[in-house]
Design a protein around this nucleic acid. Structure first.
Lengths: 203, 203
DNA sequence: ATCCCTCTCGGTCGATCGTCCAGGTCGGTC
DNA sequence: GACCGACCTGGACGATCGACCGAGAGGGAT
């Protein structure tokens, strides 16, 4: 009767189940029992696979942020149409993100809740900072791939502004769910970011 | 032995205590027992003063958001130096906000956590939307007081962008606590917002 | 066949949660 | 002095939480 599974597989099963539960019902409702029920494994399997609840959450954060990073990298690579205007490219990226957000709002809300949980939990405090740091680096890398664009301010500052805008767009949309208004704001945001670029130089 | 107090006073005592506990330890730790202990009131007084836990949280959200609004109104009124450049005024307001944020980070974190809690709790879902709606209106009002400034896009859209920027600045700072970087980003944000103003007309 | 290590699972622990209630104390009104 | 309604409280309820234990099942190595 017993399901025999390699330990690593059970761990992945639990992490995935935890993400689904957190997305659907929030971190507060993601108890060990709710997660194991979602994963269809006995409650006792939880503490066999993980030393503690927070160890699981740590892995969950790792998994979610890695997923975010992969999506962002893919989006940047797809949207590297060098012939298009800079502002157009930025706006297209933001609109693409809003599509993802509107399609899977629970995912982004889960990420925010996890960050808040991490900041309140001893041993996980650094996770939020690390996530933003890697976001900055990713954005700066994306800026660097736009060959031939000079910036009037350091690219690192542009990258931070971009993340700030993305973050603000997210939290604001999550609160009022007004996609049309968010797209209008995205238009302004794209114009703002592009405004810090000097005219393109010939390559 | 019994402390005799008007009911309304006990209510206010509990609301204030709840805000302190939430700011210090987060919503998750703000149990009825933690709150009543903070308020130095017997546990049983809790359900004498409030029908339920969520009724208290509702009042807490009301109190916190009203406090935010009052601060914002005061800041706008103080910072209405008509002789200064628009970008300077905006930047000064943002820097002022960053001062408040750096001085009382728990307060802003508490607000964000309360919004997340409200969105997950039946009966409180609208609170987050209402808060952002009033923030937009407040920002738009602040823009309107700058007589003689014409905007190249509707003020309502500028107002939304301003709130998005403020929100992004907040969440980002709360994650990495890098005040210097936040001030640099604020500089870019102020320049962006001011960039949507047409040249000032003579009045 | 024997051993051993990995894996599984039901049951239960103590702590903490929000909520409730019966009874008690007070100040004011007849 | 009798009464009443507003105010206050200790103690308990059932539910749920993270964590833990010991007995057993399974499969490969010897």
């Amino acid at each position: 009767m017993a399901q025999r599974r390699p330990l690593a597989e059970t761990r992945q099963l639990l992490v995935d189940a935890a993400i689904r539960v957190i997305a659907r019902q929030g971190v507060a409702s993601a108890s060990t029992r709710a997660i194991t029920a979602e994963a269809r494994v006995p409650l006792s399997a939880f503490h066999y696979a993980f030393d503690s609840y927070d160890h699981l959450i740590d892995r969950v954060i790792e998994s979610v942020t890695e997923g975010e990073r992969a999506i962002a990298v893919a989006a940047v690579e797809i949207d590297s149409d060098v012939d298009a205007d800079l502002e157009t490219v930025v706006l297209r990226a933001l609109d693409l993100y809003l599509d993802v957000l509107a399609a899977h709002p629970d995912q982004q809300q889960a990420l925010l809740e996890l960050m808040a949980y991490a900041q309140r939990t001893p041993g996980l405090e650094g996770r939020a900072r690390d996530y933003y740091a890697s976001s900055f680096a990713l954005a700066e890398g994306a800026l660097a791939t736009r060959a031939g664009v000079e910036w009037t301010v350091p690219p690192a500052e542009i990258a931070r502004l971009a993340i700030v805008l993305l973050d603000g767009l997210t939290t604001t949309w999550l609160a009022d769910r007004d996609t049309e208004a968010a797209r209008r704001t995205a238009r302004l945001a794209a114009a703002s970011l592009a405004g810090f670029a000097a005219q393109r130089v010939q390559v």
